[in-house]
Structures are given as structure tokens and as C-alpha cells.
Computed example of a mutant assay.
Amino acid sequence: MSEQQGRKRGSAPGDSELSHSGKKPRAPPQAAAPCAVVKLEREEEGDAGQGSSSSDARRAVVAALEPQAMEQPQLKLVIGMSVFHCQACFRPLKPPAFMCESGHIVCCTCRGKHGEACDRGRATAATFAACPGLDVVLRDAKMPCQNEEFGCTSLVVYYQAGDHHGECQWAPCFCPAPGCELFSSPARLADHLNTHHRWPLTSVRYGEPCKLPVPAPEQGCHVLVGEGDRSPRVFLVSPSALGAATAVSLVCASANAGGDQFMYMLWVEVPGNKEKLVLILPAVRSGDLSCGLPTADTDVFLAVPPVLLPEAQNLFVCIDKADAAAANSTPPMVE
């Protein structure tokens, strides 16, 4: 983890259970190991509530930050990393695992390469035996996500951890407000921008238009939170000065490019007629906001001329997941 990621850290206090019964305490069960700690885990509770108001959006963010529901007891153990790494490629072991005559445990795909090394100076070819018992452990050995401190409560199978970390939407982002040093998950960032910087926050449904005022550059962004996501997706409607006009862009606060992809449309209706100024892009730009907000010099934008700004309460934003948008042949434009 980078030095920036270590700046804002916090840890939840541990829980303890006390028995207040008049009866003699029951003998504790046999411990599996002296260092083992029994930890209860639970699945996430329901998704954030529906609605498009700022309060609904804040509830969606807060709900995503609550602890997951308890379910099955788990053992928290400390085991040397070498046990779970292939001794040929030194990467996490993936089942099925095999052991050679020398006692080295390797992945299935590494048998040939490792066998050649074992054959040197031997009269017979090395043989390998399957390790079904170890395969059971490899499939069940889990670790917390590296973004646990930022809100991710996933327990990831060890050999799949790299894939999860590359797509985890709780990976931290920087606060884009000038002078602010917050570094946290998009969900916490959205709440911070709304409560600390007073940027308006609205909950949006994918594929449905949302009507907003054109934000003024000096007032900051308008924060949008997508509904129905396990980890809330946060989008910023970002204004910047373009002479007397206003350039409006959209950016997704996400440190990872993996997972769902989004397309979007921005348009402004001209008062008194059906004409529209429209910007349609097949992909929403995303990033950890380490370089700040997009500007007219660095990003694609919808230019709102000054003649429309005095009555600019008619900015429409429609964000949709790329797969859903491709299946829908009719653009969700307001008639």
C-alpha cells in the first residue's frame, strides 16, 4: 500500500462478550489452536433505500458503511505465506495442487517446469501426487480485502485476492476540494463532500434522467450516488469556466477501472422550445481524483452558453451501465 493510503487509517475496537448468569459457566469448547481467534462474520444487509432526494442519497451512503450481518463463525489464523505459494512460480497456489517426490508443492501448470528441475541428476522422471486435502484448504482460505480500513468487508479467497483488489470499488480516492487532504473510499468521500464541503448530493437511478441546476464553478461539484450498488458508485458533475460559458463534465470517483462500465449523456434544454444541447459519451472517465477535477483543458465537456446560465435549472444527466445501455436501442432522453 502506498504512503498516501497510510495517511488516514482507523480500526474498529474489538467486541467482547460477558456472561451474566447465576448458573455455573459451561466448560469452553476445545480450542483448535492456541493462537486461533473465533470471529463472527455476517452478510451485508439490504441495499440502500430508493429515492432521488439528498437525504435518500445520504442514507444510501451511510447504509453501505454499516457493518455486515453476522453469519458463520470463522477461525482467524496466522499462517506462513509459503504454505499458500507455489514453490515453482512463487505465486498463490490454485487448486489442484501437486506434490513432487522432494516434497515441493506446485500448481498444476507448473508440474512440467518443476519436474525438469527435479529430474536433473536423476535416473528416473519425477512423479507428482495430487493433494486433495490441501485443495480443500486452498478453496476456503480467505483474507480480508486490503481496503478493509476504507469500508470493504469482503473476505476473499487467498488465490483470488489479486483479482478482487484490482476491481474493489472501496479502493480509496482523494478529495478533489482544494486544500483538503481526505483520502478514503468513494462512499465516505461522497458523505464528506456533502457534509463538510456542502456540495449537493443526489441519488440517481441508472438509465433514468436526473434534472439538476447547472453547477457554478465557484460552488463546486454536484455529487451523484448510483442506486442499487453493493458499494455505492460516486459520480461528480464538475463545472469549470470556459470564458463566459460553463463547461460541464462528468467523472466517476473510482481508483479501479474494473467492474461495471458506464456511459452517460448530458444535455441542457433551451427554454421555450424543444431544442437541446447534448453530449453523449460511450464511457465515463474514472480515476482516484489525485489530479483534481476535470477542466475544459483536460476533459470532454458540454458547453453551456452564458445566455442559458441565468435560467440554467434544466441540466439533465443520465448514467447507465454499458451493458444495459447497449441492450436499450432508445436513448433515455427527455421528450
Rank of each mutant, 00 (worst) to 15 (best):
K274Y: 09
A117D: 05
S154W: 04
G162R: 15
L308M: 06
G115E: 02
R91W: 01
L279G: 02
D140T: 11
H196V: 12
C221Y: 04
G51M: 09
M143D: 02
S240D: 12
P144K: 04
L309M: 02
H104G: 00
Q219N: 13
D15M: 05
L242F: 09
V237P: 06
L279V: 06
T124S: 13
Q30C: 09
I319N: 05
G51R: 09
A31K: 12
G292M: 07
N314G: 05
V156R: 01
Q146D: 10
L302P: 04
Q50G: 13
P95V: 03
P239M: 03
H85Y: 10
L277P: 00
A324P: 01
G51W: 09
Q219M: 05
T109I: 09
G179V: 06
Y158A: 09
D297W: 12
I105P: 05
K211N: 13
G220F: 06
H196T: 15
G133F: 09
C175Q: 07
V156T: 09
L293P: 06
K8D: 13
P28R: 03
Q4P: 09
P28K: 03
G287E: 01
L289S: 07
F84S: 10
V268D: 03
H196C: 10
T295G: 12
G112H: 07
G272P: 02
A327K: 11
Y158H: 09
H85K: 15
Q4N: 07
A257L: 08
G133T: 10
A12Y: 05
R233K: 12
L201D: 09
R42T: 08
K211S: 11
H20M: 11
E227V: 10
A312R: 07
S231F: 08
Q261W: 05
L302S: 00
E17Y: 08
L75M: 08
P305L: 00
K23N: 01
L277W: 02
E45A: 15
V307Y: 11
L77G: 01
S2I: 00
V38H: 02
G14W: 10
E71W: 05
A130R: 06
Q261Y: 04
L315Q: 10
S55W: 09
C318R: 01
P95G: 06
V78K: 10
L155F: 11
P209R: 06
G162P: 08
A63M: 13
P215W: 05
R111G: 08
G51Q: 10
L18D: 07
A123V: 13
V157P: 08
L65C: 15
S184D: 15
E43F: 09
G272Y: 02
E208I: 07
F316R: 11
V304Q: 05
V157S: 08
G228N: 03
G103H: 00
N256W: 00
K274H: 12
P310D: 08
A31P: 07
G112F: 07
S203K: 14
E218F: 06
L189Y: 05
F301H: 15
K276A: 04
P25K: 01
G14R: 12
V248H: 01
T124R: 15
L236Y: 04
A253Y: 00
A48F: 06
M1E: 10
E218V: 10
D47T: 13
D320K: 04
R233C: 15
T127I: 01
A27F: 01
P178G: 03
Y206R: 15
D47P: 14
G162I: 12
D260E: 15
W170K: 02
G133H: 13
N328Y: 00
W170Q: 06
M333C: 15
L242W: 03
P172A: 08
